[in-house]
């Protein structure tokens, strides 16, 4: 109860919000006064250096990042679907294989897989894997482990009545899976799969390990080379912004898809 002399709830809320803005303004002002703007500008926002990176950073690096990501995602999705179906199989050995695979590849760093496929396999088996194949396998093998669990959860989220209705129309188990259950499962898992695509976009930077030729460089590598050349952080900032050009719209897409699923329920 507001007694005389005390503040009402609304007044207190207004003062509290005012104080939060006040702290923010002071912090920005202090930073603006203390910072060495000239040095910051040459380190991060050197327009000349940034300009020199174009158009190659788009036509080569960005394109390669997208290419590597899609190769890994495509392979990972296909393998992930197979693993998810194995994980749900009524034949125990299939389940064991899938579980072991998933635990293994979720538990080790992706970096290790890149090293194994990029250096280990060529040395041990004396074969030279094509660069794109190496990237596709490395990103896909790890991504598949995560996607398998996502897809399995999606398949299990499809109501049991769907399979029963399909079977009672005379469809075989496999036909019902392909025509009825899996299409619905993919709708359910579209948002988490898009998240996986975002993670893979970032993980594609791991190919820098493999030593890339000029036409093979992707964003992280391109930024790093330009950093060495110009002794400035500007290239890293530009490369970072270009990752955001890919990942932020994907993130928005995830939110839109999630809203759509929420509405359909």
């Amino acid at each position: 109860m507001p007694l005389s002399g005390q503040l009402s709830r609304r007044q207190r809320a207004r003062i509290f919000r005012g104080a939060q803005y006040g702290v923010l303004v002071v912090a920005v002002a202090v930073f603006a006064l203390v910072a060495d703007w000239h040095q910051l500008r040459t380190a991060f926002f050197d327009v000349e250096i940034a300009k020199a990176m174009f158009p190659d950073i788009i036509t080569t690096a960005l394109v390669n990042t997208v290419l590597y990501t899609l190769l890994g995602f495509g392979f990972g999705l296909a393998l992930g679907l197979v693993l998810a179906l194995m994980r749900l199989s009524s034949v125990p050995p299939y389940r064991w294989i899938a579980i072991t695979y998933i635990e293994f590849f979720r538990g080790i760093p992706a970096l290790l897989v890149f090293i194994a496929l990029g250096f280990g396999v060529p040395l041990a088996f004396e074969v030279a894997l094509d660069m794109n194949i190496t990237v596709m396998l490395s990103l896909g093998l790890v991504g598949a482990a995560y996607m398998a669990e996502t897809i399995r959860a999606g398949i299990q989220a499809v109501p049991k009545g769907q399979m029963e209705a399909a079977r009672s129309l005379g469809m075989s188990h496999g036909r019902a899976m392909v025509s009825i259950v899996i299409p619905q499962a993919f709708r359910i898992v579209l948002p988490p799969l898009t998240n996986e695509l975002i993670l893979l976009t970032k993980d594609s930077s791991l190919v820098y390990l493999l030593g890339l030729s000029l036409t093979q460089v992707e964003l992280a590598n391109f930024g790093r080379d330009a950093l060495n050349e110009h002794k400035s952080l500007t290239p890293i900032l530009v490369a970072g912004l270009l990752y955001l050009v890919i990942t932020v719209p994907l993130g928005q897409l995830v939110r839109r898809l999630e809203a759509r699923t929420a509405k359909a329920r």
Partner: peptide, 19 residues
């Protein structure tokens, strides 16, 4: 599967394919 083709079934919860 062959036998089930000859038997129509209608469920309490409809179970239409939503997609």
């Amino acid at each position: 599967d062959r036998v089930r083709r000859r038997i129509g079934m209608v469920f309490q919860a409809f179970n239409l394919f939503p997609h």
